[in-house]
């Protein structure tokens, strides 16, 4: 029987399926169900800096509408953002503590941050609560025309430096694919001392409702077709980086997972497929991986992991091809 275990961020996983940071991992009961269904690890729902700020605004509006909550002269109201952040963080810490009491698989905490402000100070409290590792979901949309690329990139390194100085548990960075020189950025990030990079963040994309002239959200779930770019970059970078790589976005089937492992990923993050097909889908994906490994004669994941990465591929230039030459110019 094939051994599906893998190592990610130095943690031993019973298999490469990690349930990505999402509402699926927002309660202890759900997390325990995911473990029972066969997940190799879980990443808790992210603590969102942006979400906390929205809650602050809602609380302020409510407080000013109803002075029975807070009077305008109250010092508590003056620092309400800190208090809301603390309340959210305390609830998150409780979630980690409760889950850790009952969970056997690794539990990874996740912070979604857009700045290196005081937010990073909370990392060691997540560590103290018992998180096995920390995933930093750094999501910066560069909309400010006055801010240069170097300044934006520096935020990544500042956050990492601060976090690494605070915690001893492994740290992974979930990054965006939008960099002018992605290879260099990935390489530089991997050299900071972090233990893993997750490729890639999937951004919320606004859409329009043309009948009501309003904004609406576009596809909430990923599609398997979105995994191609992730596969490319894992394939290009897996042999060049100083840390583990995990694939995220578009991993819906055992075949998607196998491809990412062949590209060099140590694990895959799955969310949309579980939302669409239920927790039972984990067993289907693991069954598929198992069957494929048996068919190909592999006993362990390490025997084939990275087999099709750029450096081991017979046609390394394929990774760098960006035009469909065969279709458009008949040149293969």
């Amino acid at each position: 029987m094939a051994d599906l275990t893998t190592k990610y961020l130095g943690l031993s996983l019973s298999n490469p399926i990690i349930i990505g940071s999402s509402g699926l991992c927002a309660s202890v009961d759900n997390i325990l169900d995911l473990e029972k269904a066969g997940a190799g690890a879980v990443i808790l729902k992210s603590l969102f800096e942006e979400q906390i700020m929205m809650e602050v605004d809602a609380s302020l509006r409510e407080a000013y509408r109803n002075d029975m909550i807070y009077s305008a002269k109250s010092e508590s109201l003056d620092y309400i953002d800190l208090h809301i952040r603390e309340r959210t963080l305390s609830a998150y810490i409780e979630l980690i503590k409760e889950a850790k009491k009952r969970l056997m698989i690794p539990l990874i905490a996740s912070i979604n941050c857009v700045s290196s402000a005081e937010w990073t100070n909370y990392a060691n409290r997540l560590e103290e609560a018992g998180a096995d590792a920390l995933e930093l979901n750094i999501a910066i949309l560069p909309t400010d025309e006055n801010t240069g690329a170097d300044k934006i990139e520096k935020v990544y390194f500042d956050i990492i430096e601060k976090i690494l100085s605070k915690v001893k548990i492994p740290v992974a960075v979930k990054m965006s694919p939008c960099f002018t020189n992605l290879a260099q950025m990935v390489k530089r990030l991997s050299a900071t001392g972090i233990n893993g990079i997750v490729m890639f963040n999937r951004f919320y994309t606004p859409d329009f409702d043309i009948n009501n002239f309003s904004e609406k959200s576009s596809n909430t779930f990923s599609a398997p077709s979105e995994s191609g770019n992730v596969r490319r970059w894992i394939g290009i970078m897996s042999s060049r980086v100083d840390c583990d790589l995990a694939a995220s976005t578009g991993v819906h089937s055992s075949e998607d997972m196998i491809k990412q492992l062949l590209a060099g990923a140590r694990a895959v993050q799955v969310v949309s497929a579980i939302y669409k097909n239920g927790k039972e889908h984990i067993q289907e994906m693991l069954g598929g991986l198992h069957r494929w490994m048996n068919e190909k004669g592999y006993n362990t994941i390490e025997q084939f992991r990275g087999k099709l990465s750029q450096d081991k591929n017979e046609n390394p230039s394929a990774y760098e091809r960006i035009q469909f030459m065969k279709y458009f110019s008949e040149i293969k």
């Binding site: 029975m68 807070y70 002269k73 508590s76």
Partner: peptide, 10 residues
């Protein structure tokens, strides 16, 4: 206890 922090007069 109701307002979470107010003034004496409130």
């Amino acid at each position: 206890i109701v307002r979470g922090g107010a003034t004496v007069i409130l």
